[in-house]
Nucleic acid binder design. Structure first.
Lengths: 209, 209
DNA sequence: ACAACATGTGCACAAGTGTACACATTAGGT
DNA sequence: ACCTAATGTGTACACTTGTGCACATGTTGT
């Protein structure tokens, strides 16, 4: 009953997954990738694919799961590095941008999947975003930064925040990672978006009537 | 020198374009479509394709142009139907939603193109959004609804509005057009997003320091 | 050590793909 | 009415694709 011996349990599997990410990173769209192309990129024989995935969508779904891990890691880092509230937005957006650069292909895949052709993958990504949004709401509650908002309004605010950041993602993916200036522009603009949203949230209740 | 005689100048051409829209409407992703598939759907022989387009991306670009027309028509209707400021958001979002339903495939194509694999198409759609955003800014200025904002801040606000609506588009495309309840939920949620943003904009200057 | 299984490989094949070429039809301007 | 250009069609070919099958290899549990 010792199951942790496998020397390379999913070596090919990982090669296939990162082959997809590589291709996506090169500008290809996930929906246009075929099994043969992916196996070729992974340096594996086509039939090997079926040892690990039933089809491309299956592989995509498992990529979404890994994407979840990346996002969680990012969120943890954000929580550890944000000390005072006034720098909250700048710090968080900064961490987001640097993660997006470090895992470019992953986030590219995410951006694609939002309007992709597999409904399951769409739902998976959407679900990750929802999770992210509720966690953000929890944090804001804990930091006492949202005391005047009802749960519903806080949820909505966080949803809008997450959406805006996700949209900035597409901006970010549109410019080369080395273009420091453009990246910086996007970072600043995203911060301003979030500030605007939070100003709106701070003054929300009186308008709610 | 009379050039308007052509009986069916671009009949096949239109058939090809709407064939793409049909396939996209059926849930396919633009990036995964091939020339043969499209011509088959259009009921045309494969080689005809090259009479009108150089490749799929070319066709996509021309679809973006048509999309621009759809968007402009939508904006015109919005301008004609919005009378007083307090219903501005509800009216506009309503018009947006109904247009998105009426031209589902078109908007689906737009949502896909934002993270598609053709850079040119991405830029085209982005450019349409920018246009939309600046027009919105002009309207708000004209209606005296943004007097306390600098041009830059107004531009940012409108950009955020357009992005939020565009993201709602992906929500909308995710539910069946007949699911009245879900569509209504999305409509309401989008309105709340915009309200939140405008509340933020209304109180922006004091925070700007 | 041996049986059971998971994983990787090679081969095969029918189907689909992009596109070149030559030809048929039609439309437009004179 | 005629020439030219635009548009549509059929055939052809080399190539890619998904996937089934049989076999090789390695790994695990007893």
């Amino acid at each position: 009953m010792s199951e942790r011996k496998k020397r390379k349990p999913g070596e090919t599997r990982e090669k296939l997954m990162s082959a997809v990410l590589t291709l996506v990173g090169k500008g290809r769209h996930f929906a246009s990738l075929g099994i043969r192309e992916v196996t070729r990129q992974a340096g594996v024989v086509p039939t090997s694919f079926y040892r690990h995935f039933r089809n491309m969508d299956d592989l995509g779904l498992q990529l979404v799961d890994e994407l979840g891990l990346v996002l969680r890691r990012m969120m943890r880092e954000a929580r550890e590095n944000v000390f005072q509230a006034d720098k909250l937005i700048e710090e968080s957006v900064g961490i987001f941008v640097s993660h997006a650069q470090a895992n470019r292909s992953f986030f590219l895949f995410m951006a694609q999947g939002l309007a992709g052709e597999s409904r399951a993958i769409q739902d998976g990504i959407r679900s990750e975003m929802r999770y992210f949004s509720t966690e953000l709401a929890n944090d804001l509650r804990r930091l006492k930064l949202a005391d005047h908002l009802t749960d519903g309004d806080l949820e909505m605010t966080c949803d809008l925040v997450v959406r805006s950041v996700a949209f900035s993602l597409t901006d970010l993916m549109g410019v080369s990672a080395e273009d420091e200036y453009q990246v910086e522009q996007i970072r600043k603009r995203t911060c301003r978006f979030l500030q605007l949203i939070f100003v709106g949230a701070a003054h929300w209740d009186n308008k709610q009537a």
